[in-house]
Each structure stands twice: as structure tokens, then as C-alpha cells.
Nucleic acid binder design. Structure first.
Lengths: 360, 360
DNA sequence: CTGTTAGCGCATTCAG
DNA sequence: CTGAATGCGCTAACAG
């Protein structure tokens, strides 16, 4: 009976516990699952044996038997993105109490990753899927939906009839941003764009522009500045947008950015070029990630309820899993909140008035 | 044969494929696992049937049969922390090609979470464990190690004989920071601390102090400023440290912070109090997270190879899993790099003297 | 209330 | 090279 070399000892099985308690394996299983259906003394007996053996039911066996894994796949474009990591936290917060774990499918850590995700779903290694990527991953002609698992999409409406989505109200966010900057007296506006063609980007841009037009700003005074599409909503994309912004002939006095990171990248570039924020240009971000509270000036932004998006999304999913989903769940829009802070200021009609500008 | 109500159709099993291909299930299994051991024509036959059925092996069944899950549990203190999310990315990058997936155990999303992690390990739902938390989770008198799975600790040496660790060289980081600030002429230094008693905090602080002493700075001129222990290395902790820093009678002219977030929190507070960075106080962070590149001034910091820590850690783990681990793997220290940027400046002996300060 | 029986879907012996 | 048989560890019928 010497211990095996290397790896730890064999784990106790339900049979070991049954033998020790002097009952059948079925009774052990029941005593653990629904103690009410077993005589109290027997339960005690079993529990004692369980403790003695250090027994924990093997999850692979249980999964195979019950056909449920109690796991959810969360597909995230980039785990390092603050926005997503907070949503993820909300998801986990809601899923854990319901007994579900999270398997992450990080799209940026392996390029051709999508096939791994599809495999996971078809192999029935998860019971359901949460998409944060705004599209339906697929590979080899199969898509995630075809696996037939419940799916919800967070942060971006995905436009599939069987996939409910919960996201922030991007339209309202764009609109509010437009109104806000116009109300500060700015007459020429820019939008530092996110990935062109993404639903989220389109929603923010379209409504921003509409609101600006409605406020009497001329069409040609509303400029869309592209970033780096490959860099999505990141700092890098913001820097690219910043360069393009600087090159605009009759430069706008305020910029609405598709994300906070874009705003940070853009601010870096324009400030390096000598412009001051908000003195020369007002900047509004989108997302409300923590770090912008620590910038100088503190960034004005449209705050999304990041964690709540995750929580609500997970709740919808849980309802799909237990069959209690209602039509109300299909498209949930959570309100955004304008945080007006230090990076935005009213427009000063005449720059020359600042004769004695120290920085000159 | 009407399709079942609700949920999707039943997934094909290996038996379906075997029937369709006119071979046994064993042959299907072999054709998929080691095609070389099967006649080429048979393989083709099987593959065709696999395609036709849309067959993907059920992972629960495979796990049960092989006693391996191809999953790794990664325990992370806070998923929203930039430092950890980049390490996580490195982990995933190395694990995915080896066929391993990642289950995240996020400690901050559910308070009494630890028991879930322990269950996961004892239930053999994962093959191995990566700890980013710096300690060994446990509950009900059982700890994660007792599950007998391979474990590695990243970012913090955990001091357990069977747990290799790979982390940045915190000692060197603290030392370099101390030398650097002393070399800039600062004679009174502060350390904005991380969670008291944590190995990482101790390493950075101890060596920082030692280096300062070695540079001829008096013991009482090296002040340790506590943050908010509960807030660990976060912004919030940095703000608390900032308040305490401001209250120091003969205030130091340079601060070394236990993390970049702490530095950001501290800078916010001291600047709000009217101090300028680096004019009145130099600040050095630790970690090198992306966002500090976009601060104004750009933060000087000790960059840790975040993603590499994750990658190397995962590689060590993979070696433990296939039994090829060597003693070299036991404690890997990765170099940190001092990034001297805009938040640090030489000390000006007498503020008044700045009249003719050459640099000014 | 409890024991017996029968798979869940797969990989792997062992024969042929 | 292939097929038949076995069991991974557990839960859910079904009897008793």
C-alpha cells in the first residue's frame, strides 16, 4: 500500500463512501442531493463517511450523467479591456450563486481561436454562452448558434432572433453627447470613431450627428475622424484619431470619442501638439472606466453601467436555462449617464482675447 | 420523430457516426485520435460520416474516460485589475495551443468564493491550478494543495515547496526605484504601500529602503505611507496614501508607489492639494500598465513583463503536467525595467533658487 | 425510505 | 488493422 509515485493519491469515489457508511451508492447520492428524502440518521451516517473520506463528487461523471456542465462560455474580444473585465465581473457575480462557473474565450490571445470556441459549444462543455464580441463566432462552416445552446449578447445588439441582448443605450449616449457639446456653445464638432461598421460605433455616431444637426450645427461642421480600426476602441486607435484630428483645416473645438481609451489616446496626441484640454478643445469619452477619474483634467464621459450589464445579462441567461424567460428579456437597454467633468468647457468665441497667455 | 419541443436537436454521438460509416465505435475513436493506426480508406470513410453528422466528441464523456479535463483553474484576486488581466492573457496564450482552456476563479465577485474554488479542484474539474493571489485558498479545513493537482503561483512567491512560482523581481524593482530617486538628488523619500504584510509589498519596500539607506539617506527620511489595505493595490488605496502623505510634517520630495494605480490615486490627491508633479514631488509607480502612458505627465514606473509572467508560468505548469518539469522551474524571476519619464525630476534644493534654475 | 439496475458517451483493453 | 466488450463515477428509474 505504498503511495503512488509522484502525483497525489486516488480521490475517494462514491463507492468508497457507500462502503464506509454501510449503505448503497444511490443512498449516498441522495443524501447529498436531497437529504429530505433520506432518513436523518442515514444522512448523518453518510455525512460522516463523506468527511472521513474527504469525498467530493467527480464533476466529469456528474456532467456526463446529468448532461449539464454548470459552466458558461463567455466570449470576450480582449480580456485586458477595462470595459469588458467589469462586465465579466458582473456576469460572474450573478452566475456564481446559481452554481455556474465561467470559462473564458479570449479572442485576442490566439488568432484563429474561434474554432476552439465552436468546439467547446458542440462538445457540450458548457451549458450556455455569453457573447461580448458583438458577432457570432464560427469556423469550418459551423457557427456557435448551431450548437443549440442558449446565448445572450452583451454590450452589442447582435440582431439574431434567438439571441437576446442587453446593452447600454448607445443611441441615447450619442445623442446626449451631441446635445451637451452643442449646449456648451461649440459649433464645430468631431467624433473620434470606433471600429467602422460596428453596431455600437454606428449607434453612437449616428445619434451624435443627429443631435448636433438638431442643435443647428451645420452638416459640414460635424466631422467623423477615423481611428485605427484594427485597434478597435483602444488607446492606439485614439492616437491615430488624434493625428487626423490635428490635420483638420478648420479644427473643431470639441470631440466626442467612441470610448474612454480613444479619448485618452487622442488627448495625448493633441496635448503633445500644444493644445490644451479643455482650453482649446473639449473632450468627452464613453464608458466611464475607473481610470479616467484619475486623469488631469478628469475626463467627461458617458458612463455605462458595466457591471450591471453583466449581471442583467447573466440573469436573462439563467432564465433561458430554466425556461422562465419572457419576451421582456429580449432586448434590454440600460441607461447611460453623462458625467460632466473637467475635460469639457464652454466655447470661448475669441481666442485672441487671451493676449497674455503665458504658454504663448 | 417530431423534433423535441424547445431546445435544439440531440447531438450526434460516436455511435451515430459509427453506424453511418459502417464501422465500430472503436474505429471511429481511433480514426479521430490516431489516424495512423487506421487504414487510410477507413479514416476517409469515418471523416465523411463525422462531417455528415456534424459530430464533435462529447467532452464530459471524454473527461470521465480519460480522467483529464484539459482545463486549468486560474485564481485571480480581481479580474478588473489591469495587471492581472494581462497576466491572464499571457496564460491563455500559452495554454490554448496545448489544448487547455481556462476557468477563472475571480475572488472579488463573490465574497465566500473560496469554497467554490476548492470544490472545483477536489471535483477534478480542472487538471491544474494557477494562483495569482499570492496565497493558497482554502475552506472547511481543506486547501487547494490537498487536491493534489499541479499548482504554480504567479506574481507572488507563495513559499510552498511543491508550488513553483514565476514573478517579477520585486526586490530589484524596489532597489532600483530607491537608487533612482536618490540619484535625482532627493533626500527625503516616501513609499506608498500596498497591502501590508503581502510578500510583494514587503519585497518592494524592504529593498527600496535598503537602497535609499545605502545612498546615504537617513533612516527617518524614508517614510512608509500606508494606503487602504482592503483596497490592495488600487486607486482607492493610492488616494488614502495621498492623504497621509500630505499630512507628513517635513514632506518627502519623492514617492515610490507599490503600484501604478496607487500612484494615480496618490497623484490625484496631492495635485488637488496644489502640489505639482514632478515640480514639487516626483512619483514613481510599479507595474507599467498601459494607461500610465497616457497620463500627463507620463508616469515613471517599474515595468513588469506582465504577459510574459503569464506565459512562462503556463509553460512551467505544462511541464509539470507532462512530467518534464525541472528544478530550474521552481523559482523564476523575470527582470523589471525602470521607465524614467515625466513624473520624476531632479530635486531643486531651494525652491526660491529657481529664479535662475538653468533647467527652468 | 433504501437497494438494485442501467446507462450517460467515450477510449481502451483484448481478441481476432 | 478492426470489432466486441468493459468501465470511468455518477444519478435516476424502478422495485422492494
Amino acid at each position: 500500500m505504498s503511495d503512488k509515485t509522484g502525483q497525489g493519491a486516488r480521490t475517494a469515489t462514491i463507492a468508497d463512501v457507500a462502503a464506509r457508511a454501510g449503505v448503497s451508492t444511490a443512498t449516498v447520492s441522495r443524501a447529498l442531493a436531497k437529504p429530505d428524502s433520506v432518513r436523518a440518521e442515514t444522512v448523518a451516517l453518510v455525512m460522516e463517511a463523506v468527511r472521513a473520506c474527504g469525498y467530493t463528487p467527480n464533476s466529469s461523471a456528474r456532467m456526463l450523467r446529468t448532461q449539464r456542465t454548470q459552466m458558461v462560455l463567455v466570449v470576450v474580444p480582449s480580456i485586458a479591456n477595462q470595459m469588458y473585465s467589469h462586465v465579466l465581473r458582473g456576469v460572474d457575480t450573478a452566475l456564481a450563486p446559481a452554481g455556474y462557473g465561467v470559462i473564458i474565450g479570449n479572442l485576442d490571445s490566439a488568432p484563429g481561436n474561434q474554432s476552439r470556441l465552436v468546439e467547446l459549444a458542440f462538445a457540450r462543455q458548457v451549458d450556455a454562452i455569453i457573447l461580448l464580441c458583438g458577432y457570432i463566432p464560427g469556423s469550418h462552416g459551423r457557427t456557435l448558434v448551431e450548437a443549440g445552446l442558449p446565448i445572450v449578447s452583451l454590450c452589442a445588439p447582435i440582431g439574431h432572433p434567438s439571441i437576446p441582448d442587453v446593452c447600454a443605450d448607445d443611441e441615447a449616449g450619442g445623442r446626449e453627447a451631441g446635445r451637451f457639446l452643442a449646449s456648451l456653445g461649440h459649433r464645430r464638432l468631431a467624433y473620434a470613431a470606433g471600429p467602422k461598421g460596428s453596431v455600437v460605433d454606428t449607434a453612437r455616431w449616428t445619434q451624435f450627428r443627429a443631435a448636433a444637426l438638431a442643435a443647428g450645427i451645420a452638416d459640414h461642421d460635424i466631422v467623423r475622424v477615423e481611428g485605427d480600426a484594427g485597434a478597435r476602441f483602444s488607446f492606439v486607435s485614439g492616437m491615430a484619431a488624434g493625428e487626423r484630428f490635428l490635420a483638420i483645416p478648420d479644427r473643431p473645438t470639441a470631440v466626442f470619442c467612441a470610448s474612454d481609451e480613444i479619448a485618452m489616446g487622442l488627448m495625448k496626441v493633441v496635448r503633445r501638439a500644444g493644445l490644451r484640454v479643455p482650453g482649446d478643445v473639449s473632450v468627452v469619452g464613453f464608458d466611464g472606466i475607473d481610470q479616467v477619474d484619475y486623469l488631469d483634467p478628469v475626463l467627461s464621459t458617458m458612463r455605462q453601467p458595466r457591471q450591471e450589464i453583466g449581471r442583467r445579462g447573466a440573469e436573462v441567461l439563467l432564465r433561458m436555462l430554466d425556461g422562465t424567460s419572457t419576451p421582456d428579456d429580449h432586448a434590454i437597454r440600460l441607461p447611460v449617464e453623462l458625467l460632466s467633468r473637467e475635460s469639457t468647457a464652454p466655447w470661448r468665441p475669441a481666442p485672441r482675447a487671451r493676449l497674455k497667455d503665458v504658454r504663448g
